[in-house]
Computed example of a mutant assay.
Amino acid sequence: MSLGQDGPPTRTRMPEGHNPHGAAARRPQPRRTLVTVVGIVVLLIAAIAFANRGHHNAAGTATGSTTTGSTSGGKGAGAAPTAPTGEHPVTGQSGGLPSGFAHTEQGAQSAAANYAVALGGVDMFNAARRHQIVAAVHDPAVVARLQTDLDRAYSGAALKSLGLNNDGTAPGGLTFVSRTVPVGTKVTANAADAMTVEVWCTDLVGLAGQGSTNPVSSAWFTTTEKLVWVGGDWKIESSSQQDGPAPVSGDQRASTADEIAGAVRDYGGFTYAR
């Protein structure tokens, strides 16, 4: 969690566990426990910040018109909500991540989806790489404090609860899996230089390999990202997360640890655009 100079508190997705057995047999969720502990601090600081800050104005001026994802290219307004629509993914990069998103609703949705992927990935457990990611996707006004908070969060008991070594790596013979997959996006607040985007996601988290005590499991959640237009791109000013919506689990056979490890190794991720 971080506070900008005049902005609201910033939260990013922390390590959490998942329930592979359904609601009837919930197991401890160390990643979610971490979020709960950090959340208590967030609420206290947020209350103080809200009482002392005035109305936040996003920096910069509009450099392009704001349009909806269904009308700014692709198949247009008549396209079904689940059909591919809109512009091609961006070609720019910042800190090894996609950048240069359009100054439109569609661009904000694409940025939010890509940022959710980056913040939910294995690289967040490596200190040097985490610092690059956080700096690349957040408003510079909130980065310094957020880096400090995350360094504390991704350490010690949190890593141990996931079965990881102190440096965030997996024990020998095991593969650590942490991958977020956006399913859809929705703009819930729209201004020229500020957008709020919800990203509905599923993810995979756990240790794949023989003898793993924290097997890879999946969960569903929705992350809400408040984005601001800074330096010619969309950046996260603050974010939060809630569980679901979660579909009914299918009846297919669970893959072996080796199959999961191989799939994560062989199947790459995506640059998302609407």
Rank of each mutant, 00 (worst) to 15 (best):
M1G: 13
M1W: 12
S2H: 05
G4V: 09
D6S: 15
D6F: 11
R11T: 14
R13S: 07
M14C: 06
M14G: 10
P15K: 04
P15Y: 05
G17R: 10
H18T: 09
N19L: 10
H21W: 13
A25N: 15
R26T: 15
P28N: 07
Q29W: 01
Q29H: 10
V35A: 15
V35F: 08
V37F: 07
V38Y: 09
L43R: 13
I45K: 03
A47Q: 10
A47W: 10
I48E: 10
I48C: 08
F50L: 09
F50A: 07
N52K: 13
H56D: 10
G60D: 00
A62E: 11
S65T: 15
T66E: 08
T68M: 07
T71Y: 05
T71L: 06
T71F: 10
S72V: 08
G73F: 06
G74S: 11
G76V: 12
G76W: 14
G78F: 10
G78D: 11
A79T: 10
P81V: 15
P81I: 13
G86C: 05
H88R: 12
P89E: 08
P89S: 07
V90H: 01
L97G: 01
S99V: 06
A102V: 05
A102E: 11
H103M: 08
T104E: 02
T104N: 04
E105L: 11
E105F: 01
Q106M: 11
G107M: 08
A111Q: 10
A112Q: 03
A113K: 04
N114Q: 02
Y115S: 03
A116R: 03
V117S: 05
G121R: 11
V122Y: 06
D123M: 06
H131M: 09
H131G: 05
H131W: 04
I133C: 04
V134M: 00
V134Q: 00
A135Q: 08
P140Q: 10
V142E: 00
L146D: 00
L150H: 02
L150E: 06
L150D: 02
D151V: 02
A153Q: 02
Y154G: 03
A158D: 03
A158P: 06
L159R: 14
L162D: 13
L162R: 15
G163Q: 14
D167E: 12
T169P: 02
T169E: 08
G172H: 14
T175G: 07
F176L: 11
V177W: 05
R179E: 13
T180L: 12
P182G: 04
P182L: 00
V183M: 14
T185E: 01
K186P: 04
V187D: 07
V187W: 06
T188K: 09
A194D: 07
T196A: 00
V197H: 01
E198D: 03
T202I: 05
T202N: 06
D203G: 14
D203E: 15
V205W: 02
G206N: 06
Q210H: 13
S212W: 03
T213W: 04
S217W: 04
T222A: 04
T223K: 09
T224A: 00
L227N: 04
V228I: 11
V230R: 13
V230N: 09
G232H: 12
W234T: 02
K235E: 08
D243Y: 08
P245H: 06
V248N: 05
Q252F: 13
A254L: 13
G262H: 12
A263T: 07
D266F: 09
Y267P: 00
G268Y: 06
G269P: 12
F270G: 03
Y272D: 03
